[in-house]
């Protein structure tokens, strides 16, 4: 480890209350994020990939303190961000900003573009109006919007332009870490490339650290230095990009990669893993590997105990019983 991590998440868990009670009369809960840990060094990008419902967005929202965590630590730049409350939290939030998935619903339709970008600054209350105007001008330029577009409303922009406004808003309070939650999946293919390139150049320009969430492994490979694969609330594999795309270790990662339609190969030439079984019910405690029910390689041991990420402290880890034998 060369640099200390800018963001360090340890044993993060999030539990949601559900309607209804179990046979003991206790309220049912769903463990959406289960004991997740990761580090992101300054200026780097960690990608979290997984299917819908795997807990990737919930984990990120918990990191941003937008969802209450049940347990775990969130250390941001040496400070315990996870423990802050009240005004301290409000000020510290400036350091953690989010770019949302849907640029159509994540902008207030009744605010002009410049006021959307101004809002996080206004909320933190540490800048004068003139300073805000200057920051807004800089950011409009940085994200590729023209100055005269500042006075327009969201509906007057295209999807890609709206996402640019969303990016400018996220960058306004000068965050050190930006959570990109599927920032391009709602956009047209050609516009996706524009936004991905923009995010990369902004990262360099402002020395940003990204927590990048996507279900698209192609995008993940393009954008991320480190990759964490989540399945049913847990990280099942963690590696740097080259190591991961050279050889995935976890059977789920394998299945995920083999499911992506490739332009290089005909379907007949692809050997895909069949993972058609049903995922487990997370409202009850799990005794075994959560993927065991769908895993083509599952053995008896997989149903008996929960695998952990191994080898310890290695740069490429996977949580699978079959790898430790």
């Amino acid at each position: 480890m060369s640099k200390p991590a800018l963001l360090s998440v340890r044993n993060l868990s999030v539990r949601f209350p559900l309607k209804g009670r179990d046979e003991h009369g206790k309220r049912k809960t769903l463990l959406a994020v289960d004991n997740v840990s990761f580090d992101i060094p300054e200026g780097k990008t960690l990608g979290i990939v997984g299917e819908s419902g795997s807990g990737k967005t919930t984990a990120a929202l918990a990191v941003a303190r937008l969802v209450e965590k049940e347990a775990g630590q969130i250390i941001l730049d040496g400070h315990d961000f996870g423990a802050l409350t009240g005004d301290e939290l409000r000020i510290a939030r400036q350091n953690v900003q989010i770019i949302f998935q849907d640029p159509y619903s994540s902008l207030n339709p009744r605010l002009r573009a410049e006021d959307i970008v101004r809002e996080p600054l206004r909320h933190a209350g540490q800048t004068s109006r003139q300073e805000q105007d200057k920051i807004i001008d800089e950011l409009f330029h940085a994200v590729g919007l023209r100055p005269e577009q500042k006075r327009l409303f969201p509906h007057q922009f295209s999807g890609g332009q709206r996402q640019r406004i969303g990016i400018a808003r996220a960058l306004a309070p000068r965050p050190s870490i930006v959570i990109c939650d599927e920032p391009v999946s709602a956009l047209d293919v050609a516009v996706q490339a524009q936004i991905l390139n923009l995010l990369k150049s902004l990262q360099k320009q402002f020395n940003l650290t990204y927590l990048f969430i996507s279900h698209d492994l192609g995008v993940i490979q393009h954008m991320c230095d480190e990759i964490a694969v989540m399945y049913m609330g847990q990280v099942v594999e963690r590696a740097n990009r080259n190591s991961f795309f050279k050889q995935q270790k976890h059977p789920y990662s394998n299945a995920l990669l083999s499911a992506v339609p490739s332009i290089e190969l005909h379907a007949e030439h692809i050997r895909r893993q069949d993972i058609s079984g049903a995922p487990p019910d997370l409202t009850v405690p799990q005794t075994g590997c959560r993927f065991a029910g769908r895993c083509p390689l599952a053995q008896k041991a997989c149903h008996l105990s929960v695998p952990v990420l191994l080898p310890e402290n290695a740069s490429h880890q996977a949580a699978c019983h079959l790898l430790t034998d």
Partner: peptide, 22 residues
């Protein structure tokens, strides 16, 4: 313009070819 998965690639282009505009 779509980042296709490249298996085992060590070096990747830093930027994607873009189609300008909409």
């Amino acid at each position: 313009c779509v980042p296709h998965i490249r298996k085992g690639a060590d070096r990747l282009p830093n930027t994607l070819p873009e189609i300008d505009g909409i």
